[in-house]
Amino acid sequence: MTSEYRIKQLSIFAPNTPGTLAEIAKIFLDNEVNISAFCIAEANNFGVVRAVVDKPDAVFAAFEKKNYLLKFTDVVAVKMSDVPGGLYDVASKFGAAGLNIEYAYASRSTTTPTLVVYVSNTNISLEAAVEKILASGLVLVRAAEMRI
């Protein structure tokens, strides 16, 4: 079952003003949602906050209620070794499998370091990408595990 590795990432539109991130974080807090991995991508006068959390569906509705613009994006989370070469091991296997990493960000949650990756090959489905990743010997985090 490759679909159990499909992780629903939240992509939240964030105006570039002081206090915006605090407001976003408060919504996570108020809904008792734990953030496993997170990053901010910045553009012209706005940002996109990306987060992998334990209760994505519940918090999605909470954000919508507060007029936030957001979207689910499917990503995968790859386990990394916490030693020199850990990132190289993951990145080189993705490369060898022909998978393009559009963006990625690291997390140390769920006991081992994890790299959250968005695969952007337009001709490869997420399922196919997951199969390739598993075939390369890498270990993926299940969506259920992210929700602990």
Binding site: Q9, S11, F13, A43, N44, V48, E64, L69, K71, Y118
Partner: peptide, 15 residues
Amino acid sequence: ELKPDAMTDSINGLI
């Protein structure tokens, strides 16, 4: 103002 369904995860798309 963006419409709710205009959101995308792609920074390039938004730019």
